[in-house]
Design a protein around this nucleic acid. Structure first.
Length: 948
RNA sequence: GCGCCGAUAGCUCAGCUGGCUAGAGCACGCCCCUGAUAAGGGCGAGGUCGAUGGUUCGAGUCCAUUUCGGCGCACCA
């Protein structure tokens, strides 16, 4: 440059900002967290919104065990989107994070550790209460440790919550409030105690609820066994034939170990049954199944001798193949023709249907299996003391030797396992506490099942489902669910406050439960293991309790030792947290993974309905599960898990949040480190757009601009941007309202990427840099950009709280305001934007595409720089005319000419302007460029800006 | 086994009540800019819409069957 004297660069208004391009989230986020904590942001928000309308949002308690995983991350971050987006709408948002503390997962782990440390043997010598307390102390310490750990990890995700005051199910006040729920349920008549088969974990020696089971494949013997009829002639009469030898009832089972408990055989009264001769034996099998069975048992020679209805078989008797007793044929309509023989081995102590049949037929609920999975002494000698799993083979062997075995093979099927010990569970009759879902609730006269179904589906439905298909799913589960087994035989939990009277009967009334609740509120549930019944019932006055049993003698009571299913505690959180803390009821929303349809959603619904008659939530939002990039389940054992810590170290919480907002959460959510890298790139795009806007606002004062009375006309490119901004705001607020975060994410990204970066910013660069600093056109654009940053910060705040705040603070810093102190973004609210879109801009957008394509063609002829070009666009109807002034900028060329003739077809002609003078300052060839007083070649605009 | 959900460019996803040559972002290729620069812009290539069979003038979109994957359920006795 020979004319170095005229270096116009210094006369330009070039971008300037402290907002860094590189986010450095790893260090910057913790600093933001510290600032929030120091300013007690969570508390301040509640204060600031003291009079605002409430938005009650209740957090489901994760289990206080282990580090958080990506599933937690997704769940907590989605919840935070709700919290922060509702805050931005001006609501007073109540959100208390919580933890589930009691239960088998912790106790199981603690026991393993105690065994490892060799402390178990010593504990076993202690008296039961002391032993339980020792275990409980270890468990409590473990829960505390993990609550603290996870608190920090969740806070690190930049989630806004009062982590200093979380709820935990082991807090005395929580426990007491849970017992209040229980007392009301007892009062409502839905709690009962009964001897019946429940899922039993041998490893942990306790009953388990449905929510504590997982299903794994398992190989079991599949056996066909002949049970000899006691009275051959009676069978003959049923079939109307004279049997040549003693006939047998053929049953099928995959649990040979339950055969010692066999007390009956069930048939369907309306099915046809056949007396069949096969390889010299005579058996009874359902007619429609014989072909299948014959094939299964590989019968070679066989024929059907006679047939009769199942009803004709009812009442016949058989000899148990190895126990010294007879059993009877009974009718049951659950017998199917899908598997087996149509004759169902019935052991009332080992199956739910068997149990019901047993009750109806007056059979004993006989369960010869003890808690440790071994047989008691009521079984034949050769089985006594043996574990049921060993017994499977033994029974098979015995039946084979005794000639009762028709066929035996191994069979793979899915079988329930204890979710903690991963060992198979058995069905075993024990005395347990239950919530009856088909018992009428006193207050409504309806059963819990009816009430739940009414709340969830049909015309009476009050609960909203996001996504909608959750409704069907929950309905299906509610229709089928069995009674809820509430009791567990463990130490780590909230005791079911029942006492045993001298005569062995149970004592527990609503009033006594409330009395114990009061004691526990003061001392915590440990007191159950440390105090006498009289102490526990200190607040109980039998004379004031109408339900107290006659002749109650508190002095002779002993404590019962069942504890609550942890799901009952979590399922009472609407009372223990929302109502007990005065937050409100019901919650607007419960938001959890789709497995909670059977878990927390359902087990919160039942108690709430029983006690209040209302569901505890207005809406249920479910998200899918995290799977790897191939759609496989993510787990540590498969080695495809991504550690949250690694993720945060590599990308920061903001990128993880940005990713979470981009995910369609209805179905499975695929995850791979690569996806976070991609999210990081798109985050950078948004960040850089904000940075560009901020960098052009360093000399702008919005107050002064407002005072100047200037406005943004719809025909200006700024008016176009404002209209787009207004549209964006509507779209994003609506998306947040509907919990469709992805829609918000896409809209924001597209706005930053296309509307701003590719179009508006590209188009306005020239005026920002080259117009006189205080020129009205430049100021107008700055006003527009200011509005964009302001609005974007608010729209982004729910998803990118750190970045949005960083930009927000930087924005205000440019006018000397310390926003971090004075007006934190979190306390802001949306303000509607009034801007109308001028229709010419739609046409301009279409024209821009044609211009780009035409320029691309011109490039091939050497016209590389669009500023060296002018374009003329056919605009027959003068559609573009109103916005002509800003079209050169919009198209990125030096000049635009509109041609008001020709057809309606859009035609673009490119003019090569390289022969015309080029402004040394703005590099444009707008036709006004000439030599100025300082000797430079400048356009009119630039000459004026420089003042020559 | 039963219920619910998903399967669309290399990747992540849009495609509402069936209708012009199936869209976006990212990645990729070519190019421009060098006054957003470990930035910015333009153009382009890329898909038998899991498979099969049906309904229809016409189906990614409706129906049936099926495969794979996820979540849930359980009277597999």
């Amino acid at each position: 440059m020979t004319e170095t004297a005229r270096d116009y660069r210094s006369t330009l208004n070039l971008p300037k900002t402290g907002f860094p391009m590189k986010a450095n989230l790893g260090q910057a986020e913790p600093a933001t967290l510290k600032r929030w904590a120091e300013g007690s942001l969570a508390a301040r928000v509640l204060e600031a919104r003291a009079d605002a309308p409430n938005f009650v949002f209740h957090d489901g308690p994760p289990y206080a065990n282990g580090n958080i995983h990506i599933g937690h991350l997704l769940n907590k971050v989605l919840k935070d989107f709700v919290v922060r987006s509702r805050l931005m709408e001006g609501k007073r948002v109540h959100y208390v994070p919580g933890w589930d503390c009691h239960g088998l997962p912790i106790e199981h782990k603690v026991m393993l550790e105690l065994v490892e440390k060799g402390k178990m043997a010593k504990l076993d010598t202690l008296e039961p209460d002391l032993r339980r307390m020792a275990i409980r102390r270890e468990c409590a310490a473990s829960a505390d440790k993990f609550i603290k750990l996870q608190c920090g990890q969740m806070e690190r995700l930049l989630t806004l919550a009062d982590y200093a005051h979380p709820y935990a199910t082991k807090q005395p006040e929580y426990e007491a409030a849970t017992l209040e729920v229980f007392a009301s349920m007892v009062e409502q008549g839905v709690v009962y105690r009964d001897l019946k088969p429940v899922h039993w974990s041998i490893a942990n020696q306790t009953a388990l609820a449905e929510a504590e089971l997982e299903y794994e494949d398992r190989d079991d013997p599949s056996i066909y066994v002949d049970f000899e009829a006691s009275d051959a002639e009676a069978v003959g009469r049923a079939f109307g034939v004279e049997p040549e030898c003693r006939p047998s009832f053929m049953i099928w089972t995959t649990t040979p170990w339950t055969l010692p408990a066999n007390l009956a055989i069930a048939v369907h009264p309306r099915y046809r049954y056949a007396l069949v001769e096969h390889d010299g034996a005579l058996s009874i099998v359902a007619s429609d199944l014989w072909a299948k069975v014959a094939a299964a048992v590989s019968a070679e020679k066989h024929r059907v001798v006679a047939e009769c209805d199942g009803a004709a078989l009812v009442g016949l008797t058989y000899r148990h193949p190895f126990c010294d007793r007879e059993g009877g044929i009974v009718a049951a309509d659950y017998v199917t023709l899908e598997d087996g023989t149509g004759l169902v081995h019935t052991a009332p102590g080992h199956g739910a249907d068997d149990y019901r049949t047993g009750l109806r037929e007056g059979l004993a609920i006989y369960c010869p299996v003890r808690g440790d999975g071994t047989y008691d002494d009521t079984v034949p000698q050769w089985l006594r003391g043996m574990s049921v799993w060993e017994a499977n083979a033994k029974v098979v062997e015995h039946l084979t030797q005794s000639g009762h075995m028709v066929h035996h093979q191994m069979f793979r099927h899915s079988y329930p396992h204890d979710w903690r010990s991963k060992t198979p569970v058995i069905f075993r009759a024990t005395e347990q506490w239950f919530v009856g879902v088909d018992r009428p609730v006193k207050s409504s006269g309806k059963t819990l099942r009816e009430m739940a179904l009414a709340a969830v589906g049909g015309e009476t439905a009050t609960v909203r489902f996001v996504p909608e298909w959750g409704r069907n799913r929950m309905r299906g589960m509610l229709e089928n669910r069995p009674d809820w087994c509430l009791s567990r035989q463990r130490s780590w939990g909230l005791p079911i406050p029942a006492f045993v009277q001298a005569d062995g009967s149970m004592f527990m009334t609503p009033t006594s439960v409330r009395a114990v609740a009061r004691r526990i509120a003061e001392k915590g549930s440990d007191c159950w293991f440390q105090e006498s019944p009289a102490q526990l019932l200190a607040a109980y006055d039998p004379s004031a309790d109408a339900s107290a049993p006659a002749g109650l003698d508190i002095a002779s009571l002993t404590k019962a030792y069942d504890i609550f299913d942890v799901w009952f505690e979590a399922g009472s959180s609407w009372n223990s947290v929302m109502r007990a803390r005065g937050i409100g009821f019901p919650s607007e929303l419960y938001l959890e993974g789709s497995d909670q349809h059977r878990g927390w959603f359902q087990l919160s619904l039942l108690p709430a309905l029983a006690v209040t008659g209302e569901p505890p939530y207005r809406a249920l939002l479910t998200h899918g599960f995290i799977v790897d990039k191939d759609g496989k389940k993510m787990s540590k054992s498969l080695g495809n898990a991504i550690e949250v810590e690694d993720l945060l170290k590599l990308h920061g919480a903001e990128v993880a949040r940005w990713w979470a907002s981009s995910v369609p959460y209805d179905g499975d959510i695929r995850v791979d480190m690569e996806f976070f890298r991609l999210a990081g790139e798109s985050y950078r795009k948004v960040r850089n757009t904000l940075r560009f806007l901020l960098s052009n606002l360093s000399d702008f004062n919005p107050e002064a601009w407002k005072k100047s009375g200037a406005s943004i006309g719809p025909e200006t490119i700024d008016g176009w941007a404002m209209a787009q901004l207004a549209q964006l705001q509507r779209t994003v607020r609506d998306a947040y309202e509907r919990y469709q975060f992805r829609d918000a994410h896409v809209a924001i990204f597209d706005f930053c990427n296309e509307t701003l970066s590719a179009r508006y910013c590209a188009a306005t660069k020239d005026r920002l840099y080259c117009d006189a600093a205080n020129g009205p056109r430049r100021r107008r654009t700055q006003a527009t950009m200011w509005a964009c940053v302001e609005t974007l910060c608010k729209l982004l705040a729910p998803v990118l709280p750190h970045t949005a705040e960083e930009a927000w603070n930087s924005l205000w810093q440019s006018v000397g305001v310390d926003a971090a102190k004075g007006r934190p973004l979190t306390l802001e609210q949306h303000a509607p934007i009034a801007a109308q879109l001028h229709p010419a801009w739609d046409a301009a957008l279409v024209a821009k595409e044609s211009v780009s394509k035409a320029l691309e063609v011109a490039k091939a002829e050497g016209l590389d720089n669009p500023l060296d070009a002018g374009v003329s666009v056919v605009d027959a109807a003068a559609t573009l005319k109103p916005v002509l002034a800003d079209l050169p900028d919009f198209f990125g060329v030096s000049r635009v000419e509109l041609v008001e003739r020709g057809t309606g077809a859009l035609t673009v002609t490119v003019q090569d302007l390289r022969n015309e003078p080029r402004c040394e300052r703005s590099w444009r060839r707008d036709g006004t460029v000439r030599e100025r007083g300082d000797g430079g070649l400048l356009s009119d605009r630039d000459a004026a800006a420089v003042g020559v």
